[in-house]
């Protein structure tokens, strides 16, 4: 086994050291470890290339001579192989260690630690950051993060079954472009292939396994996508009366408050009508909606159903 490892290291060194593309026959002639019949060498080399690529090492294929493109050549460009973070300070090393440690025991912990190992080779010692108690954790981990990040890297398709709000199971097919964590929940955003628009999915609402499929069609990243776009873009507001001293959760959403004596009148931006209705109902008779009519309608319907369900 160690002969294979030696061969892989020697191949990496040879392809990195060369200033031009090396042909296969040159590689077989000069790199130690390629033995046996031409077919055996060929198979060995194909497997070695795949192995190095799976370690994240990019091998460029090019023509030995651009005028006579008879035989393909190979090389590893040092700018692709080497880590280039520019000048790095001891404080930055500490921040990166904290970032890696945030994954302790969680999904990408191994990836984070192997990144740290590479960074340690830069030889810049960490400068402990003087902030007491700072060690945030990305605790709640999802087994799907691996497959999602790989698909984002290659713009591959992800297909999965998704639990919709009425508990029906829908088949989804997306090209993922974003990964986020909100209050401990993981979300993946991607271009839904059915509607060709960006949609966001909570990973723990995915039913069963996520399948990944190679994307050979090419993909254009939607340039105008930002996470919290809707949050800033909304123009719709609800006008709600909230009893004095009550409705704290609703008050935190308010952009304006007017004193009405026993009640306060607040203005709340609307991002999703249904979820705002749920928050208002949670507060019972401490909250009363004036506007918009659609929201009043939802509340009245729910209250009517509540009444008839509990009589």
């Amino acid at each position: 086994m160690s002969r294979k490892i030696e061969r892989l290291i020697n191949l990496t060194i040879a392809l990195l050291a060369t200033k031009r593309y090396l042909t296969k026959s040159e590689i077989f002639r000069t790199v130690e470890g390629y033995e046996g019949s031409p077919e055996t060498k060929e198979r060995m080399f194909e497997r070695d290339k795949d192995d190095l690529r799976s370690l994240g090492i990019e091998i460029n294929v090019g023509s030995f001579d651009p005028l006579f493109s008879d035989e393909a050549g190979y090389r590893i460009k040092s700018e692709n192989y080497q880590l280039d973070l520019g000048e790095i300070t001891p404080t930055e090393i500490s921040l990166l260690s904290l970032a890696a440690d945030a994954w302790q025991g969680a999904a990408l912990a191994d990836a984070a630690q192997s990144a740290l190992l590479k960074l340690s080779a830069i030889g810049v010692p960490a400068d402990p950051i003087d902030i007491p108690g700072i060690s945030p954790k990305l605790s709640n981990s999802s087994k799907d993060l691996d497959i999602v990040t790989d698909a984002i890297a290659n713009s591959d398709f992800l297909t999965f079954e998704y639990l919709s709000s009425d508990l029906s199971i829908e088949d989804r097919n997306i090209v993922p472009i974003a990964l986020s964590n909100r209050s401990g929940f993981w979300y993946v955003s991607g271009v839904d292939q059915e509607v060709q628009e960006v949609r966001t999915f909570r990973l723990d609402r995915i039913n069963g396994d996520i399948q990944s499929r190679k994307n050979t069609e090419g993909f254009e990243f939607p340039v105008d996508f930002e996470f919290d776009e809707i949050r800033t873009a909304t123009k719709a507001f609800a006008v709600i009366d909230v009893r004095k001293g009550k409705g704290n959760a609703l008050r935190t959403l308010a952009t304006a408050t007017k004193d009405l004596g026993e009640w306060d009148q607040i203005r709340v931006p609307i991002f999703a009508l249904e979820s705002l209705a749920v928050q208002i109902l949670w507060h019972g008779d401490d909250a009363f909606v004036h506007e918009p009519a659609e929201l009043r309608q939802i509340i009245i319907e729910q209250l009517t159903a509540l009444k008839s369900n509990h009589e």
Binding site: L83, S114, A115, K118, L119, I122, I152, A153
Partner: peptide, 11 residues
């Protein structure tokens, strides 16, 4: 040092 992989970078 070797460059970081996509997944390492995401982490």
């Amino acid at each position: 040092p070797r460059s970081i992989t996509f997944q390492e970078g995401v982490a």
